[in-house]
Simulated scan of single mutants.
Amino acid sequence: MEIGVEQKEIITESKKMVKKRVYRELISGLLFASPVLLGFLIFVIGPVLYTVYLSFTKYNIVSAPQFVGFDNYIHLLSGKDAFYYPAVKATFYYVMLSVPAGIIFSFFIAILLNMKIRGRTIFRAIFYLPVIIPLAASSIIWLWLLQPNFGIVNYLLETFHLPTSLWLSSDATVIPTLILISLWTTGNMIVIFLAGLQNIPSHLYEAFEVDGGNSFQKLFYITVPMSSSIIFFNTVIGFINAFQTFVQPYVMTQGGPNKASYLYVLYLFREGFQFSNFGTSSASAVMLFIIILLFTWIFFKFSKSLVYYEGQEDRK
């Protein structure tokens, strides 16, 4: 059946109206999203691109940037900078220990907070409360508590006839001490784990109990596999945040003693804002971005074999 001229005109007019409506909706959506989009472009993408540009220059704020090519990267990787590789070493030491410690600690605290005990709401608030306290303020408090000579922690250890420690004043103990302090601010991880635990179907535990499973078996055969996606998420976020740790070593140790806690972002900060070597500082920032990107890619590369998603058997 052939379409008449009038029908063709109606169809053409309808298509025009649909295109106009889609166009208007697109414009309206962009207008509503423009504050976020502009903020992202101006305050995120813009500085990132400018940092990449500065990494190829010699710049000290006073004079205009001078293009030097890859000299800043060669300067860092060749070991000519006496502070760079100690910062990389200290950072990897801190990250590789603090992230697993934070994951294990927050996961088991979440399991305890998920139990049906009296006053668990209060306990949940107590464990989350340190996240609200500014890091600089809590770092100063920890600095007083861990003072080797008159700190309350060593005083309590002496009272109970236990060995004391130099804590932040020794090369051997400064990073482990920073890791212990980092557990103080795992409230966000605990909340995320708690939300994941509450989504595990209760009938799985009931069926396991019928089959004679004990608490440890339920933990390893139900809780951990069903929480693997949450563990994966917290691990990725934990690595990203740990590589960017700055406030605690800046406030408590200033990178000491003997560069033992001279973490990467502290090096980046001092190189730029203390020594005015913004070219080198920008190059180290770009390299940190590449390191974080590489670790994130590795995690996602192996996530399919390590992470269980409910219903994934149906998608195969």
Rank of each mutant, 00 (worst) to 15 (best):
F92N: 04
S78I: 04
K16W: 05
A101M: 14
N60E: 14
I111S: 04
L37T: 04
L30S: 11
A64M: 11
V48C: 12
Y73C: 10
G102R: 03
L38R: 01
E25N: 12
F67L: 13
G29M: 05
I42T: 13
I104H: 02
F67I: 13
L41C: 13
I10H: 02
K89C: 00
L26C: 12
D71W: 02
N72Y: 05
A90I: 05
L54F: 12
P86G: 09
F107G: 02
V18Q: 11
V22H: 05
F32T: 05
S34L: 13
A110F: 04
R24W: 10
L26E: 02
V68K: 06
F43R: 08
V88R: 07
K80P: 00
K89T: 11
I42Y: 14
F108Q: 02
S98F: 00
F83N: 14
L26W: 07
E9T: 03
S55L: 12
A87T: 05
D81N: 15
F107C: 03
A110D: 05
K15N: 10
G69M: 08
S63P: 00
F32R: 01
K16I: 04
G29A: 10
L76W: 09
I103T: 01
T12Q: 14
V88Q: 07
I61F: 13
Y85F: 15
V36K: 01
Y84W: 12
K15W: 10
E25G: 04
V52N: 09
K58T: 11
E13C: 02
F105Q: 00
Q66R: 14
P35K: 10
K16H: 02
M17N: 10
F43E: 10
R21G: 01
T57D: 04
F67T: 08
S55G: 12
L54H: 04
K80W: 09
G39V: 07
P86E: 07
L31C: 13
F107Y: 13
I42F: 15
E9W: 06
F56A: 15
L30P: 05
K8C: 08
L30H: 06
K19M: 12
S28F: 12
I111E: 10
T91H: 07
F92P: 01
V36I: 15
I109Y: 01
Y23T: 09
F32P: 01
E25P: 00
Y93N: 08
